[in-house]
């Protein structure tokens, strides 16, 4: 195991142990949590259940955005190894990535023309 990986793993565990101390400190220093019913209610501007609860449905746009994000993010991950090695690669390697990026741009233009990203 490389020392960088070991370092990161140990640091993550230490952080996961140290940061919650802040939350624990509040429960010790602050007043005990109450059993009052009204105080523990969710904040709704004083109006109860006008728009429905937490289980309500969401516009499908949110899921579309997430899917588009996945596509473009994974594409960026593909590009990093290429970016590191682009000086050593020949013009062939360069052209291949240009084709890949152009395909993605075409996809983006298609999405735009289809009106996926048109908000009401």
């Amino acid at each position: 195991m490389s020392s960088e990986l070991l370092f990161s793993i140990i640091a993550i565990f230490l952080l996961a142990a140290l940061v919650p101390i802040g939350m624990v400190a509040t429960t010790i220093l602050g007043p005990r949590s109450s059993k009052e019913k009204i105080k523990n209610e969710a904040y709704e501007s004083g109006i109860k259940n006008v728009l429905g609860g937490v289980d309500q449905k969401f516009s499908v746009k949110f899921y579309l955005i997430t899917i588009l994000f996945l596509i473009f993010d994974i594409e960026a991950v593909f590009m990093y190894p290429w970016a590191v090695n682009v000086r050593e690669l020949s013009w062939f390697g360069f052209t291949e990535m240009v084709v890949f990026i152009l395909l993605l741009l075409t996809g983006l233009i298609y999405i735009l023309r289809k009106g996926v990203l048109n908000w009401r």
């Binding site: 802040g22 939350m23 400190a25 509040t26 429960t27 220093l29 602050g30 007043p31 005990r32 949590s33 109450s34 019913k37 105080k39 523990n40 209610e41 969710a42 904040y43």
Partner: peptide, 12 residues
């Protein structure tokens, strides 16, 4: 001040 406040966990 933030430390000394009560941590309210809402019902549900």
């Amino acid at each position: 001040k933030l430390m000394a406040k009560q941590l309210i966990i809402p019902d549900g």
